[in-house]
Simulated assay, not measured.
Amino acid sequence: MDRKKKKTIILLAMILLLVVANGAASAWNDKSEKKKEKEAEASKIYLTDASDITAYSYSDGSQNMSFAKVDDTWEYDEDNEIPMNQDTVQSTADAIRQMEAVRELKNPDQLSDYGLDKPSYTIQFQDNDGVTTEILIGNGAGENYYATVGDSGKVYTISSGFQDYLQFDLTNLVQYDTVPSIGSGNLKSVTITENGTDTVYEEDDQVGELAGGFGALSLTDCANYHASAEELAEYGLDESQRITAKAVYTDSSDKEQTFTVYLGKTDDAGENRYVMVEGSDMVYRISETVAQNMISIEETGK
């Protein structure tokens, strides 16, 4: 074997050894990382550890919120017609069903010493076996809070961040109607129907003006979660009174879509207008300026 060929074989062998060594090191690191994760998980302390829950409620002594899962959909017990933001309500359910403790107190004193006889929050949940569990959250403990489960007598501390899951403002839990992304680049035409008369805007300059209104539309200020026919008339949103704004636009896949909004009366101050989305029972308030920008252009004043 000549010298050059021998050097090549040695070099290839060294490269192979390096590849094997790197592979082994990578496998060892992965195994070590998984071991650390397993050990970290094993060291965690949980007040609750249910596989799933079907209902839960929480109270701060003056306010109460309760939810139940019906056919895999979370509903608000006080009014099951109000659509809930499923991700938000589920995230609270997950935090309750597996509540992690910062630590467990050894040989705790009386529950009253931790404010657990008159808790700041009381939580109840029902698991998928129908078992109901109660959690009490008491006084603050530095950056944490004291907590106990049922009549276990055990006292834990939990992160103060858990309070973020206990939302008492319904507006933070509702699933509002979505507004598609509409701008001058993808808005093709707008048809305004008022008193039985259609006005179609499809010239570039006209569409450009109206795109500003649709682009600024935000449906977050809800006036009524499910308006009755009588209430719609009061808002000016019944069929005989409302103005219809139908936008034709292209979505991110360049497919043509339509988005239709009904506009009713202004509120008592005249600063906001009642609106609703076609196919929805929810009534919103939007700025009168935004409303006018959706239905009128400067050239015609229409």
Rank of each mutant, 00 (worst) to 15 (best):
N293S: 14
N272K: 15
T244L: 09
D251P: 01
T250G: 07
D238F: 03
M294R: 04
V248G: 11
S296I: 07
R273E: 06
I286V: 11
V290Q: 04
A247G: 07
M282F: 03
R242F: 04
L237S: 04
D281K: 04
E256W: 10
T266A: 13
V275T: 06
D238I: 00
G279A: 03
D238S: 00
S253Y: 13
Y284K: 03
F259Q: 06
V275L: 05
L263T: 05
Q292S: 08
L237F: 00
I295Q: 04
I286P: 01
E239V: 01
E288G: 13
D251I: 05
E288K: 13
N272T: 10
T289G: 11
I295W: 07
Q292V: 11
K255G: 09
S252L: 12
G264W: 05
G264F: 05
V275I: 13
R273H: 11
D267N: 15
Y274A: 03
T300C: 06
S240Y: 09
S240W: 08
K255D: 13
S287E: 06
D268Q: 12
V248D: 09
T289M: 06
S296D: 06
I286D: 04
I297E: 10
I297N: 13
N272L: 11
R242W: 01
M294G: 01
M294H: 05
V261P: 06
D238W: 04
V283P: 00
K246Q: 09
S253W: 10
A269E: 14
V290D: 02
A269T: 14
K265R: 09
V283K: 03
M276S: 07
E278D: 13
Q257K: 15
L263N: 03
E288C: 14
I297S: 12
T266K: 15
A245K: 09
L263G: 04
I295R: 05
T289Y: 12
Q257S: 08
I295C: 11
S253M: 11
N293W: 11
T266G: 14
V290I: 06
Y262H: 11
D251L: 05
R285K: 14
T260N: 09
Y284N: 01
E278C: 01
D238C: 06
S287W: 01
S280W: 00
V261M: 09
V261C: 04
E299I: 10
V277T: 07
D251G: 05
S280L: 00
K265V: 01
Q241Y: 09
L237H: 00
G279P: 03
M282C: 09
D268V: 10
G264I: 02
G264L: 02
I286K: 00
D254G: 03
Q257R: 15
N293E: 15
V275A: 03
V283I: 07
T289W: 08
S253A: 13
S240C: 05
V261G: 05
T258Y: 06
E239F: 03
A291L: 00
I243R: 07
N293Q: 14
R285L: 14
I286L: 02
K255H: 14
S252K: 14
E288D: 12
V290E: 08
S252P: 07
E239S: 10
E299R: 14
R273I: 09
D251H: 04
D267T: 11
E299T: 14
Y262D: 02
E278F: 05
T250R: 12
D267L: 03
I243K: 10
A247V: 02
